[in-house]
């Protein structure tokens, strides 16, 4: 068995060689972003599944939304939408900042994004409590709550990511010009949640 003839120091050596050649934030950094993109593709497929179901109901049912569904209020969700979309731009400024090694800037912009995200969620909850229909009222109502709720969960998760970045950025030199995967990941995720919302808003509120 040639393999076991190998002594430990060789393996150790082998290991060191590898860590030295691949800088921890070089190659692996790339993999992680790649992996995240794949993950987001899978996530889109869930939303696509839900949206398609929604569209099928829309096209199969004679009256949509079913009779007796109160009109959806557009003002609040509209404002909410604008807030969410603009938060994406605000967030991007955060990444710009860290690219210039400006941790303070990162913190500032991300904090603003977090607040905007929180406003969105509160707005959503407010809407839930003031709607005239409940989860079980009819198919449209159920679809409305499940779609927005599932999206809301994603916003919540994105918010947690942002908070995690903020927390970590307090550690000295955690993020820098060269190394800011966490920032990138959180931002990519947030953009994703944003795009999903745009589609969802169009489907549920506008169509």
């Amino acid at each position: 068995m040639q393999g076991s003839a190998l002594n430990e120091s060789q393996i150790a050596l082998n290991y060191h060689k590898n860590t030295e050649t691949t800088t921890p934030h070089g190659a692996h950094h790339d993999h992680r972003l790649f992996g995240l993109v794949l993950f987001l593709i899978a996530e889109s497929a869930i939303f696509l599944g839900l949206f398609t179901a929604f569209l099928i109901y829309r096209s199969v049912l004679p009256v949509w939304p079913p009779e007796g569904t109160p009109e959806l209020e557009l003002l609040l969700p509209g404002i909410n939408t604008i807030i969410l979309i603009s938060s994406s731009f605000v967030m991007h400024k955060g990444q710009d900042a860290i690219k210039k090694n400006d941790v303070k800037g990162l913190q500032l912009w991300f904090a603003i994004t977090a607040i905007m995200g929180a406003i969105f969620l509160v707005g959503q909850l407010y809407e839930y409590f003031h709607l005239e229909f409940g989860l079980k009222t009819n198919l449209f109502a159920s679809a409305f709550y499940v779609l927005t709720g599932f999206h809301g969960l994603h916003v919540t998760f994105g918010l947690l990511l942002i908070l995690a970045v903020l927390l970590r950025s307090r550690k000295k030199d955690h993020y820098s010009q060269e190394s800011f995967f966490g920032v990138e990941a959180a931002e990519l995720y947030w953009h994703f949640v944003d795009v999903v919302w745009i589609v969802l808003f169009t489907l549920v509120y506008l169509l």
């Binding site: 794949l38 899978a42 497929a45 869930i46 939303f47 599944g49 839900l50 179901a53 499940v146």
Partner: peptide, 13 residues
């Protein structure tokens, strides 16, 4: 990646 999430969506509903 493309199909399993749709099952998840069905199962959630």
């Amino acid at each position: 990646l493309l199909s399993t999430p749709v099952l998840a969506a069905a199962l959630i509903l």
